[in-house]
């Protein structure tokens, strides 16, 4: 069964003493099964918080989560622990940035893969399990002999690839990658992304890629969501975002990004820094750094406005900006 992921009005507030930090602020989007979405944002923009909220990994005492995250028929934020446990890894798999550190140093790689397999298949057929695990190694370009090796015998890049393999074990419908390829070498990263896209073609996996690297998303995803200070500022296809960015933040981001083949125009930074998210912000969150902002921008919060197709941006000045 194909399941869409639909996020409605998701907000996450971290409570620390008197301070209420709005890490994710009213984010809504939908992606269809088989789609791939890149979530782009700088450090502190709330992208990791957002996916931790999807998976209910945030501590309930210090983080309050509002909204709805519908995965097929299930609301991930309210479904029972039991249901969540069924979904995790089998239908929703995650690879974190430093997940190489999550491998046990005192067990062989094969043993650790078997353990994961047994969680969802209690009495496995030994041969079947072994074959499946070896096929996973092959998917990430690793040799079968890894089975008997320990994590410390492998390089960081190989360990990270193992975790990507581990996440694919049950052919999940939703694969979430939180900076999962950032630490990999250029060649390895390129090959893994290719491999992932090939697997997706075959198995209709929905992929969420969280990264700060626009180029990774440009080459491997179909759609992009741009997050700034916890708010969604722009959403669209890769072409929409890269070739016709509408929000001043997205425009700034692209102008600051070095291109590999394009004309070598001057790189421009976005002046200023991320605002303090503990402060109430009634207007556009980007207004203090925005070259086009006026009083209206500071007074009221812009809604997402539809442009062509699925392309949309949250800005008062849409259309009035010349790049």
């Amino acid at each position: 069964m194909m399941k869409d992921l639909s996020v409605r009005n998701l907000s996450v507030t971290y409570l620390s003493g008197e301070k209420h930090v709005r890490a994710v602020d009213d984010v809504s989007f939908t992606i269809q099964a088989g789609d791939s979405l890149g979530i782009i944002g700088e450090s502190g923009s709330g992208k990791s918080t957002m996916i931790n909220a999807f998976l209910r990994l945030l501590p309930a005492r210090t983080a309050s989560v509002q909204g709805q995250v519908m995965f097929g028929e299930d609301d991930l934020l309210t479904c029972s622990e039991k249901r969540l446990r069924e979904l995790r890894w089998k239908e929703i798999a995650v690879v974190f940035q430093k997940s190489m550190n999550s491998l046990s140093p005192i067990h062989t790689i094969g043993r650790q893969f078997e353990d994961v397999y047994k969680v969802h298949v209690p009495h496995p057929d030994k041969k079947e399990m072994h074959d499946l695990i070896c096929s996973l190694f092959a998917k990430v370009n690793l040799n079968d002999r890894i089975y008997r090796m320990y994590p410390f015998e492998l390089s960081g890049g190989m360990q990270q690839r193992l975790n990507i393999a581990l996440s694919l074990m049950f052919s999940p419908q939703l694969l979430i990658m939180d900076e999962a390829t950032t630490a990999l070498d250029v060649v390895t990263q390129g090959q893994i992304l290719d491999e992932l896209m090939a697997i997706e073609e075959k198995q209709a996996i929905t992929r969420l890629m969280i990264t700060h690297d626009l180029s990774v998303v440009a080459g491997s995803c179909k759609k992009i969501l741009v997050l700034y200070a916890g708010r969604m500022v722009e959403f669209g296809t890769v072409r929409d975002i890269l070739k016709a960015p509408a929000h001043p933040y997205t425009i700034g981001l692209i102008q600051s990004f070095p291109s590999l083949y394009g004309p070598k125009t001057d790189l421009k930074s976005i002046p200023g820094t991320l605002p303090d998210l503990a402060q109430e912000c009634p207007g556009c969150i980007f207004a203090p750094r925005c070259p086009y902002a006026d009083e209206g921008c500071k007074a009221s919060r812009p809604e997402m406005q539809a442009l062509e197709g699925i392309h949309g941006a949250a800005c008062h000045k849409l259309g009035g900006i010349s790049v």
Binding site: V186, V187, Q189, G190, Q191, L193, D213, L214, S215, V216, A218, G219, S220, V238, R239, L242, K243, I254, F257, S259, L260, Y261, G262
Partner: peptide
């Protein structure tokens, strides 16, 4: 190989 595998924004 290195250059061809390099992620780029020039789609």
């Amino acid at each position: 190989a290195l250059v061809s595998n390099c992620a780029t924004i020039d789609i």
